[in-house]
Deep mutational scan, measured.
Amino acid sequence: MDVFMKGLSKAKEGVVAAAEKTKQGVAEAAGKTKEGVLYVGSKTKEGVVHGVATVAEKTKEQVTNVGGAVVTGVTAVAQKTVEGAGSIAAATGFVKKDQLGKNEEGAPQEGILEDMPVDPDNEAYEMPSEEGYQDYEPEA
């Protein structure tokens, strides 16, 4: 019985440690998101679009440190934060509304985080759909 109880105690310690790591990862992701939003706020009209992409990228980098179902929630929060940063930029006159959601080359930025393969159960990952990809044929 002692062996059984000791095993359960060790398992509990492992769960607590994993929860603490997840909590730490979420806190880091939130900190990076805040950094990115402050970065966007300090940019001029020309830099705002690039700044919004930076927020998304920093958040995406930190999301990889967070495991399990938390990833889905962090990704949703990050996307809403990026959308909010863009709205703030438009409201303050840093950028025109028609410039939001495009990178410096004018290509749409939507789907940055949505296409990231995420499995809350950590069982399997699927690649994003290939609808947006084109076949590449090298020139002879």
Rank of each mutant, 00 (worst) to 15 (best):
G25H: 13
Q62A: 08
E114W: 14
V70N: 01
V40C: 03
G31H: 07
V55L: 13
T22V: 07
A91R: 05
T64W: 05
E83L: 04
Q99D: 13
Q109R: 08
K32Y: 06
K102H: 05
N65A: 14
A107N: 15
V55A: 10
V95L: 14
E139Y: 14
E20I: 06
G47W: 12
D119G: 08
V15A: 05
G101W: 04
K21H: 03
K96T: 11
T92G: 08
E20W: 06
K34E: 00
H50V: 02
T33E: 00
E105M: 04
G47M: 08
D119C: 12
A56N: 02
V70A: 04
L100W: 01
E57I: 10
T75Y: 10
V37D: 00
K60Q: 13
P138A: 09
T59Q: 01
D98H: 15
G111Q: 15
E130W: 08
S9G: 10
V71S: 08
G86H: 11
T81N: 03
K23T: 05
A140R: 10
V82H: 04
V63F: 04
A89W: 14
A124W: 09
A30W: 11
D121M: 08
E123N: 12
G101N: 01
P120K: 10
D98T: 13
S129R: 03
K43L: 09
S129C: 09
G106K: 06
L100G: 14
M116D: 07
E130T: 10
K96Q: 13
K43F: 11
M5F: 01
V70G: 02
G41T: 08
V82L: 13
H50S: 06
A56D: 01
A89I: 08
T54E: 03
A124C: 08
A69F: 15
V49S: 13
T44E: 00
D119Y: 01
G51V: 11
A30L: 10
G51R: 10
K6A: 10
P120V: 06
Q79E: 03
A17N: 09
E46W: 04
G31P: 00
K32R: 14
A29N: 01
Q24G: 03
G84D: 04
I112N: 15
K10R: 13
F94S: 05
E126G: 08
E110K: 03
A124F: 13
Y39P: 00
L100Y: 01
N103I: 06
S87G: 08
Q134H: 03
V16C: 09
T59S: 03
G7Q: 07
T22K: 00
L38R: 09
G132L: 11
S87A: 10
T75K: 08
K80W: 13
A29Y: 14
E139G: 07
E35Y: 12
V66H: 09
D115H: 12
A91Q: 05
Q62S: 12
T44Q: 01
V48A: 04
G132H: 04
L113R: 13
E114I: 03
K58C: 12
T44H: 02
E61G: 09
A124E: 12
V16M: 15
G132S: 02
